[in-house]
Design a protein around this nucleic acid. Structure first.
Lengths: 358, 358
DNA sequence: CCAGCATAGTAAACCGATTTAGTAAGATAC
DNA sequence: GTATCTTACTAAATCGGTTTACTATGCTGG
């Protein structure tokens, strides 16, 4: 039975709440730190400690508002229950949606996470994973970012598209995505299509563009150099799509449909089309990509290829935790493919009758 | 001069990179941990160690890819260089923008941060700050969330609006914001205005609504019960604004202008108005709040009151770090007010001539 | 010749937990 | 009566650093 020893100090500590250490609690109870630790953690070693004492310990812990230092615990157990998330940018819809999926799963499992955003600067893309590792993260999730292989914790990439050893990729089925969009436009009767590619630094750009060309070939749709634009610039504003579309219009070649790299740029594109006197969808159909929240509330509502971004985040977190807790159970998958969905709204329609160029 | 001792183990460690501890490095060099620590940290105690040895130490550290464990350091120094950020939701424009401002300043200063989102669930609003404290965060930033006072690290609230001891509030000048919006509409000639209030759980709702009523009184504008709606529901989708606006329209009372709680709901409102056969801005002017990125690319482009959200995040981080590093230097400010800006775009115009009710 | 000082470090405590190995006291077995 | 087994704990090592206090050596000045 412990000798209770409630002195003045304990009263002071109790008020503030913080600063109550295991040592303090143990002294207050007249027990050893080990005994208290066993009970607090319900460790098997606690079986030899009588119920009466266990209750006393728990009561004192509650009363003094004892909260074990996560840091000390991490150091001893070599487990931080923390992971690192690397994104290009926070302020933008894409990463935020993925992050919210990641968070859902992680916090549920008792993990916290650090977020860093690199703004596409190479030295940060290199440095942040190392800094995170120094902070003892148990794994990394990279969103639209290529993880360097100099890191030796498990990694999961959402739309990483690079074959990095030890990294699991969560990717969209881009072939299917391209097919869905082009088939939709083709079945409406469109033959002259314009395209907007993503920025060079985006991991999705190349893969998606390859998929578009494949799909176009299958559907016998021409992909013309002049009607192919590319987003340029870091910002995630519709302005980028607006500018590219102005260029496409300026080249003079006619088109009745536009398939854009993402919703944000599609929104800018619509603006540009409208300013040039083209009605959407009567004169030109526009199809976006992602299905961000505001896509449904554009005027006209945007037809788009939906990426299950939140779910991709959740899957990423799930796979990562699996790999952390059962490292060798299953040889971790190299790639997990999720399926897109075509969301048909009001920005796509049959082409005007009179503009049947071919 | 240290006796070098490069054995087989060191070669193995070098490859993997991780797992190189100070102890290992010191043994490899034939020096004490203390000496190595002094040099690595450029501590004043290193002055008694000759340059030659310092160079040897640094070279070995580089070569073995030594990275000090942040956790061990935190434990000893009682400094985690970590802060906690509490937001209602990540996926939504508001919090994401504030977060990106927070991040900018924090990472620059060598701090990392944990994010948690509580989805307006009270038990999480209570619990997360405690969990964060257990993880030794040195401060908390709460976005649109009331911090409980049971936490004893410095706190900063962005749009907190509650007088919690020890918490600095970063708030918008709502009086000015309301004046800007209503003055704009009044000067266009509007007299019959409808209003959409924010959800009950949002900290801004009450303050902003009070400001609107004040401004309306000053400008001699009636605020009628029937023309006052309120957002309901957790989601941050335009749908909420859409539904409220349908109700406002259903009550039959005429109005020529609508001032909505935020841009997201204003976007939904425009949709509802249009479906009811009201043109924007010819029949009804709509003014939003926040100036989220897509506001400028709505059709029509949205007139709105801009909140400097990114800057509010940066200020929050700055104040917090000040309070952490110089706790008593200046009695920390209770409140910091930032100014709104009226962004006039295409969704507001003079009211139609024939509808001059009063 | 030796006190005193600079030089070049080292030993050990410490941060706050977890965990292994061990101990003292009493009960039971034979 | 003593060997053994529970019961109820405790002491001390450990995680990986930082930091204080101290030591050993060589040189200089008087």
């Amino acid at each position: 039975m412990p000798r209770s020893k409630s002195n003045r100090t304990s009263a002071v500590r109790k008020q503030s709440g913080a600063g109550v250490s295991l040592k303090f609690l143990a002294e207050h109870l007249g027990l050893s730190q080990a005994a208290v630790s066993f009970v607090i953690n319900r460790s098997p070693a606690a079986k030899s400690i009588p119920h009466r004492t266990q209750e006393l310990i728990r009561a004192a812990a509650r009363e003094l508002n004892y909260r074990p230092s996560h840091i000390a615990r991490s150091l001893r157990q070599q487990r931080s229950f923390t992971i690192g998330v690397v994104v290009p940018e926070i302020s933008e819809g894409y990463a935020a949606l993925v992050m919210s999926g990641i968070e859902d799963h992680l916090l549920q499992e008792g993990y916290f996470y650090f977020v860093v955003s690199h703004h596409h600067r190479n030295e940060l893309i290199e440095e942040y994973p190392l800094l995170l590792q120094q902070r003892a993260v148990e794994g990394l999730i990279a969103v639209d970012t290529v993880l360097s292989d100099r890191v030796d914790v498990p990694g999961v990439a959402v739309s990483g598209h690079r074959d990095v050893p030890g990294v699991t990729n969560i990717v969209l089925n881009h072939d299917r995505a391209a097919c869905l969009a082009l088939q939709h436009l083709a079945s409406l009767g469109h033959r002259n299509m314009a395209f907007i590619k993503g920025q060079e630094f985006s991991s999705d750009t190349e893969v998606r563009w390859e998929a578009v060309r494949e799909a176009a070939k299958k559907l016998n749709i021409q992909v013309r150099e002049h009607l192919t634009g590319q987003l340029e610039g870091e910002s995630s504003s519709p302005l980028l799509g607006y500018l590219v579309t102005q260029k496409l219009l300026a080249c003079g070649e006619p088109f009745t449909a536009l398939f854009s790299f993402n919703d944000i740029s599609a929104i800018g594109a619509i603006q540009a089309l409208r300013e040039a006197g083209r009605r959407v969808p009567e004169d030109v159909s526009v199809v976006g990509f992602d299905d961000i929240q505001s896509a449904a509330f554009q005027n006209p509502a945007l037809t788009t290829v939906r990426q299950p971004l939140r779910r991709m985040g959740m899957i990423a977190a799930e796979i990562l935790l699996q790999r952390i807790t059962a490292p060798t159970k299953t040889a971790h998958p190299k790639e997990i493919v999720v399926e897109p969905e075509l969301i048909i709204r009001a920005s796509s329609a049959p082409p005007p009758k009179n503009s049947n160029f071919n």
